[in-house]
Structure formats: structure tokens, C-alpha cells
Write a protein that binds this DNA or RNA. Structure first.
Lengths: 207, 207
DNA sequence: AGCTAAGCTTAACAGCGTTAAGATTGACTA
DNA sequence: TAGTCAATCTTAACGCTGTTAAGCTTAGCT
């Protein structure tokens, strides 16, 4: 292994180290308290060093987001793999997302409430990313419901957006309004999922 | 009119002036570009002068939020006044909120995505505010639906939260993801409202 | 031993919210 | 009318932010 490769390896490892420290700082201290200088202090380097491994703060945030979406898309695939009823799979996936958001508000805030780390919709569609992969897996889960004839005749992408928006809203409320307890958010999350899935379905069971 | 009253009047007027300039700055330049110093420049005073009329930046934001909620609760009351079918009234109210958010992203962002201007849920419930008034009007519209026997047996507050969360989500997506066009958001907003109202209702019309 | 370049740091810029202290101004009183 | 006092506004500063330019240190290769 040549020197250049060794350096490259080292560089990659350091990048990891910074990334891990950054995520930890976010989770423990919260979104507001995060700063490049605090991160630098945590890893015992000067703030400018970080800029040798990440173009800027947004680049760092992007990396963390991508990592999360990697895990999340894995989890979605897993949920889908042990699928019985497609609608129940979808319900499971939605509740998983919301629960993650409610239990990890700082991380969720970082991921979803950061100003446009993924650019415009066009850029997002064109450029390969874990976020896009996650979207596609989620989309397939919805498509499964449609294929099974469970849903009304609505465009799959519209349904996907509708659903992601709903779970988004739960977190938005929980994080930004600060009026919500975890228990209350849980109740509302379940109600929202129930109501939406009920509203989407073609046939509805009466009580 | 004594001097003290005159001063008080003037002070109130200046407060208004600052408030109007602040809102304008928010709407035109966007949330990110807003700062106390830029606002000061706009009104041709030094930045510190603002602090004689508002305790701090949050206090200023609070004032703007309250003003909006004043208008919004009026609008809701108006919609409710010319009510025919309660569910249609609710639909109307929801679409009005979402449409406002989609057409005034900066203002909406300021109002709903600012860190806890209204404190915890307990503080929010106890302390009189336009935001709370708006909530109550909205709550009554939902209660109308329940009283008319249109909805399933779900707690009124849970429904209100569910609905506000949903509209919240539309804006969250539209504002923060930057992947969404106005048209697409419109479609998704209508779909979301349709699906949720359908899901909430006791009896559902099949197509 | 001397050169080269990678790796890291110090110093600085321009911006932020906010506060303390001082200047200005206008009105009331002695 | 001169003097006092308080309201009003500004200048200067603190400590923070993201980010860049320039310089220092050190390790590897010739």
C-alpha cells in the first residue's frame, strides 16, 4: 500500500471521526448549540481543520443526513421483507418513522428541518442519494398497497408525498411548537396514521 | 392629553412602525436574511433602538405572530359564520390555512417554525394569546362536525391536533425541503385534506 | 541535508444578538 | 431665562457564528 493510499485511508478515517463527533454533538447538545467551533473543541482540533475534510457546514450536515437515510432505507426494506398485508406494512413504516422522530428530536430536526441540503426537487431527483433511495423504497411500499387494490385511484407519488408530509407534521409540531409531550404526540401520530390509511382505502370497515 | 400619555402614544406608534418594517423585511427578504441590524438599517435607526421597544428578537417575533393569529382567527370566524355543512366549513378552513402558508412561505415560516415563541403547552394554555384564540375557534369548527354526528368517536383535541399537524406538514415540506413547487403542494394539500376528512368521517361515500 | 508537500493552526473578516455607557434633546421648574 | 432631569437615541463593545488567507510544523523522498 503506497503512501498516497495510506494518506487517503487516514483522511477517510478522520472524516468518519469528525462525522461521528458531529452527530454525537447534535444528539446530545441539540441543533441550536451545535457549531463548527464546538465540534472542533470536541475533537481537539482547530475549527479550520474541519474545513479540510468538509467543504462547509452544509456539507457536513449533508453527510450526516445521508448516513441516517442509509439506515432508514435498510429498516424500510426490512419491514417490507417480512410483509404480510401491504397496508399493515405501510402503517408499520409510518409509525417507525414517526417514532424515530419523536425519540430523536435533535437528529430528526437536523435531517428534516435543515435548509435545503438536497437542493431543488429537480436536483434531488437527478442526483443519487440515500435520501432518494429511501423515497423509492417507501414509494414501493405504497405501490404494493395500490397493486393489492387496497387504495383509491390516486397517483402513487401524491400518496407518498401526502404520507411523508403527515409524518413530517407530527415532528414539526413536536419539535417547533414545544407544546407537545411525547405521549400526546404518540396518540396523535397513531390517530393520524389510522385516519389517513382509513381515508386512503377503497373499502372501509364500519364500527 | 398629558405629556406622559403623548409619549406613550408615540412609543406605541413607533412600536407599530418597527413591527411593520420587521414583517415587511421578513416577507420580502426571507427568514434567513432577517436580522436586528438589517431591520435597524431599514427604519434608519441604530440596532439598539429596537431594544427600547422590544425586549429582544423573540419578543419582536412574538408580536408579529400574534398579529397574524389575530387576522387568522377573524378569518376563521368569518368562514364559520357563513357555514352550511360543518365538514365543508372545516375543509374550507384547512385549505385556507394551507393556501396561506403556500403563498406566504416566509411569513408562515416565521410564525410556525420559530423556536417556541409560545413556551410550553402549559404556559400556552394558561396565557391569553391570539394563537390560543385561533386554536379555540378552530376547535369549535371541529366540535361542530362532531356535534353534527359526522365524525368517528375521537377526542376533539386529538382531531384538532391531527389536522393542524397535517397542514403544518404541508408547509414543512414546502418550506424546508425546497423540493416542492406550488402546484404540487396544492395537489398534495387537497389530497391530504380529502383523505383525512374522509378518514375521520363515520360514513363514507363509495365511488 | 535539503526540498516538498501534507496537515494543522493562528489571525482575521464580516456578520450575528445583546448590553453598558455616554451623548443629545426637549420639557418642566426654580 | 437658566438649570435640571428624564426620555431617546447612538457608539463601542462582548462573545458568539461560519469561513478564508496565510503561515507554521513535520514527515517522507531524493
Amino acid at each position: 500500500m503506497g503512501v498516497k493510499e495510506k494518506r487517503a485511508k487516514y483522511k477517510e478515517e478522520f472524516r468518519r471521526e469528525i462525522l461521528d463527533a458531529a452527530r454525537e454533538l447534535f444528539i446530545n447538545e441539540g441543533y441550536e448549540k451545535f457549531s463548527m467551533r464546538r465540534l472542533a473543541e470536541k475533537i481537539d482540533y482547530s475549527a479550520t481543520t474541519i474545513y479540510l475534510y468538509f467543504r462547509n457546514k452544509d456539507d457536513l450536515l449533508f453527510a450526516i443526513c445521508e448516513e441516517f437515510f442509509g439506515h432508514f432505507s435498510d429498516k424500510l426494506n426490512h419491514i417490507r421483507a417480512l410483509s404480510q398485508d401491504p397496508v399493515e406494512t405501510l402503517r408499520h413504516a409510518l409509525l417507525y418513522l414517526m417514532n424515530f422522530g419523536l425519540e430523536n428530536p435533535n437528529q430528526y430536526k437536523l435531517i428534516f428541518f435543515t435548509k435545503s441540503v438536497y437542493g431543488t426537487r429537480e436536483e434531488w431527483v437527478e442526483q443519487e442519494s440515500m435520501a432518494r433511495n429511501t423515497y423509492f423504497v417507501f414509494r414501493e411500499i405504497v405501490q404494493d398497497c395500490i397493486n393489492a387494490g387496497k387504495f383509491q385511484d390516486i397517483d402513487v407519488d401524491v400518496i407518498v408525498d401526502t404520507l411523508s408530509i403527515a409524518s413530517h407534521g407530527v415532528m414539526a409540531k413536536n419539535i417547533h411548537c414545544a407544546n407537545f409531550s411525547k405521549e400526546r404526540s404518540d396518540i396523535v401520530a397513531h390517530t393520524l396514521v389510522d385516519v389517513i390509511l382509513r381515508g386512503l382505502q377503497r373499502q372501509i370497515s364500519f364500527e
